[in-house]
Amino acid sequence: MQNFPLNLLTLPIWWYTRGLTMVWRWYKRRTNFALQSTGLALFARHMWEPLYQDYTRSGRILSFFLRIAVLLYKTLVSGLSLVYYGLFLVVYACLLPAVLVMIIFQILNHA
């Protein structure tokens, strides 16, 4: 986006190069933020530690299953966030061609 007035013409190139890079970076930031909010990585780090320092046999067994359950839940939530923000990425990628197609469609129909 350096040269006026060619910006409008270079928009498609920009859209899939620099624009896509920026949107990808945004996607990574949002998903990192989402992962941080669930604490998935931190939780996974302690996967093999018993909950609340309960090192008894029963405590370890219970911790294992509970941790699996919580991990699954956190993974699901994180996964949904990845998908949710991923949709924006897909929409971004499809938006420009969709708009161009609709404009062409309108022109052809009017013609």
Binding site: M1, V99, Q106
Partner: peptide
């Protein structure tokens, strides 16, 4: 998706919206 002047104007403005969005991102 119907063929009409209003829809045509709307889709043209969508293209310019994308340009404005690109400027904002930049």
């Amino acid at each position: 998706f119907e063929s009409s002047s209003y829809a045509f104007v709307f889709w043209i403005s969508m293209l310019t919206n994308l340009y404005l969005w690109a400027k904002y991102m930049e």
